[in-house]
Design a protein around this nucleic acid. Sequence first.
DNA 1: GTCTATAATTGGATAGAC
DNA 2: GTCTATCCAATTATAGAC
Lengths: 180, 180
Amino acid sequence: MTAPRPSTKESIRAAAARLFPLHGYTGTSVRDIAAAAGVDAALVIRHFGSKEELFLEIMQLSDEAQPLLDGPLDELGEHFIDYVLTTGDEVRGVFLALIRASDSDGVAPRLREMHDAAFVAPLRSRLEGPDAELRSRLAAALVGGLLYSLWVVGDEQLLAADRAEVVRRYGALLQALITP
Amino acid sequence: MTAPRPSTKESIRAAAARLFPLHGYTGTSVRDIAAAAGVDAALVIRHFGSKEELFLEIMQLSDEAQPLLDGPLDELGEHFIDYVLTTGDEVRGVFLALIRASDSDGVAPRLREMHDAAFVAPLRSRLEGPDAELRSRLAAALVGGLLYSLWVVGDEQLLAADRAEVVRRYGALLQALITP
DNA sequence: GTCTATAATTGGATAGAC
DNA sequence: GTCTATCCAATTATAGAC
């Protein structure tokens, strides 16, 4: 009831959130965003300062609750892999856009943040032992590698593979880091 | 003795091979390449057709002999991880440039080729069993994930970690896919 | 083969009227 | 707050003289 009609700023935000994950940073011009939002290009800069500032404001994942923090520890490996594989296209788009723009000085820290928040932190919170830190970072690398193969490389044979089989096999590897 | 003085085309090729991995595709202009090669920008297009064609011609790894194809199978996991971690900056640059330009239609297949040639094929050649194909693809994902964490994300704690420890732990995971 | 000059387009960002 | 008009810099690529 606070905003019955979407404000210009919100229209721009919505358009950017749709286009950036779809076409990447360089592939999305300020004019494209403005056109999709139905506003003038000048307003985009007016409201957000610059294209990069807008990009950084858009490209963050809503802190989705991780329901798997409560599950049994000895099944966390498979559950986590299953969880990341159910990830929707929206998250996928943000992930890809950040990776492909990660040569920019402003984007690199943001990618690190997302990697930490989405992969390292959830796993770190359930690990114990003196080397838990290293193990959780290796676990995050392992998880990221699966998404890298599927989404960045586009390994067709892996994309076509039986999902349950991937969850079982790759989940077992992750489990070996969780409960050595 | 075939070419005592580097031809213009070779000069361009050498400059591109140095700059693309260093600054990426969009970060390297045709003018930059021409200037580094000491030639005119028009010659770059003249000799290679377009910037993207030049990029694709440059961005392939010289088929480096993999000395680890001969080692003992039960040590392949650690040896392979050790091998990719010794990879020089040159390979690293190619890897990063391909990933960050992978939204281009022409680059995506090239990244797939490199992933296959560098990770999947060497492992696949040593694996046996009916599910060797899937296991080698998961193994490639695992290896790629380590380089993703180190080079793309730039996980500082992983970069600072004891190298032998990483080889031992992550190598053990890879080994579990090689000899289940 | 090489280079000068420039075309043709696109990009982000700004000034100022309303 | 909004929009019209535009600036200015940068890009890839081409045409044509030498």
